[in-house]
Design a protein around this nucleic acid. Structure first.
Lengths: 203, 203, 203, 203
DNA sequence: AATGAATGAGATTTCATTCAT
DNA sequence: TATGAATGAAATCTCATTCAT
């Protein structure tokens, strides 16, 4: 059912180590030499698997995009309420980042990919994916009176995603010094309070 | 009263074009050659003003840090309530970014500066500056019952700053396609609603 | 009767596409990768048919040399006068180049093959072949008083071959923009006039 | 009076050694490494003087083109008859090639420059220069009855230039084994005979 | 204060070729 | 007969930086 990338095993290896290199030392250290060294093969060998370095970066983004789309499809299929779906998305993001901290470093760093039009386009479409998903869930929540409707859905969505991004960024810049999943759960509890319909808070 | 940088005119020029280069083409295009070309001088001339490229990056951060500190000092001196102070900070940020979009591209891109410990430390201290400022204002707001106190102040601060960051990021990735000041004002109105003490919403 | 090359079908394919690649993009684009891509096979597959790239270049030259030798043998067997034989050689060259323009690009480009002694030797022997053939025909023509003998046969031969080469070169550099066979015929008419015995020399 | 190239001393050095490298080992040995080694400087140093390797090749052609134009201008200013002018051009070419054999290897090797459109265009314009010059001289010679007019001037010009090119090519492929100036003079004597007006044509 | 010339290190990429399958 | 994976060598070019002037 899931969309599947056509990446070969070696291509996946390259994508993985590339993400790790970027996360650890920054995009400027993502060199063919460093990739090949990490994999224990020669530099030209990389070019058997990707035509150019740009293609590696595009593959990182494409891989993430497909994963995210699958995650969204999965969540939508769970038969949960809109607010519960946001919760699932929140928590699954946190879990993924804890398991693969390097991904967090790369995926919220749109700037990394700004130096090429094709990369920038892909980054934008990834951002749009999560944005549209959350926005439509909020809208649905407002229609079912599970989310306060005195604030435009786009802004609620922006606030939620902004908080998600910033907590992940802080976690990463702190060198994963705090428990992201725990803090993330607390953050979600607060967000839930914030977005609940106003009168219900009285109860 | 303000802290003042000791940067010479030429140093300021270099800082400015460096920010512009990063904003336009990414950190990888920030080369001595590109800086000197933008300024119409030779490459060695740059070294009259900065000892190394790292020093230029540090200067960018230091310059921003001092500006931000001055801005905070200024806001605190206005004699406003804590919520009003957050509002002023919000709006002055937006105005600054509209006047200097390149700055927005650089200043929320912590990843750019991750490949060196000195840079990373500076980035963290800048983040801490705004975080501490907002957090203390929220805390004060809670004590004066102008801000709801059923949500920890750190989380409210995180949500506010996260929203601020994300709207600026979107504005930048959209190539400044929407009116950041207008959308920012609307966002702030929504945030104000969210953080107001719960019962007061009934009125 | 003809000498026959022992080249297999695949080897001939390789020779052909190699000539085309050189003609179209220059010797620097003649790479194993480009050859194999043109043939739709893998790079190592080339090495089933030729031991090395040098061997491919040698094969191109050898193939042409044998063709030329066969052509010379054929012309000599026609039982024509010496001037008629030159004419036949002229015209058959033009026809061959029109049918296979790539060949023209390669065969008058001795420089292409200068970077290896074995190649250079082969090139020289090919040049000698046509030179000797024409020279001996001119000499024979002079002995039978069909060609003026007030000019050394080597020089007449050089002038004839030089004209042949240059018109082909111009045709090729013009991207075959003119009708080589027609212009070639006109050129031959003029050359015939030039080399006919002249009475005026008696004066 | 002469057109002058704006090449710096270093640029001229680079052009010179490049021609020598091509002449000696072929275009494929013209590498930045070989150029820099010949000059005793580092590879990056080359890029102070030319933006790219292509620019070096273009400079070689431009340099030759200007020299040739100056040579043509000079010859035309001598106040000689058209046939004498061709003679001067012939001999000065031979002298130049004897003094700088490498130039001969490069300048009649149009194929070397075929892999780039800008190079190919420049090559064509150089060929046109000499072609037009000779053709107009022949035409003038025919009008003044110093050159036979029973053969179209374009063809006489082609025959003359073809002979010039081929003798130079042979001299080069023989590793300058014969005396080009002496053989060239003999060739010219023969050509002069060939192109003189013929009484026999009257018949 | 500025520059022209230079360089060691290293970037991406291509080359001909090999080898296990 | 063919290929996927790999490689050492080398190509072009860029980088931050230095130094004499």
């Amino acid at each position: 059912m899931n969309k599947v990338t056509n990446f070969t095993k070696r291509q996946k290896d390259i994508i993985d180590v590339s993400i790790k290199i970027i996360a650890k030392n920054g995009i400027q250290h993502l060199t063919i030499k460093n990739i090949s060294k990490s994999l224990g093969i020669s530099e030209p060998a990389i070019y058997r698997h990707f035509e150019s370095k740009l293609d590696i970066l595009l593959a990182i983004l494409l891989d993430f995009k497909i994963k995210m789309q699958n995650s969204i499809d999965h969540i939508q299929a769970l038969g949960k309420t809109s607010v519960e779906q946001i919760e699932v998305m929140f928590f699954s993001h946190f879990r993924e980042f804890v398991n693969n901290p390097a991904l967090a470093a790369v995926i919220f760093s749109e700037e990394i990919f700004q130096n090429d039009k094709r990369l920038a386009r892909q980054v934008k479409s990834i951002m749009k994916l999560s944005q549209d998903f959350i926005t439509s869930l909020i809208q649905e929540g407002q229609q079912t009176h599970m989310v306060r409707d005195d604030i435009p859905h786009e802004q609620l969505s922006l606030i939620i995603l902004g908080a998600l991004r910033l907590i992940v960024t802080r976690w990463r810049l702190s060198d994963t010094a705090f428990d992201l999943e725990k803090e993330g759960h607390n953050l979600w509890k607060s967000i839930k309070k914030l977005i609940y319909p106003v009168n219900s808070n009285i109860l």
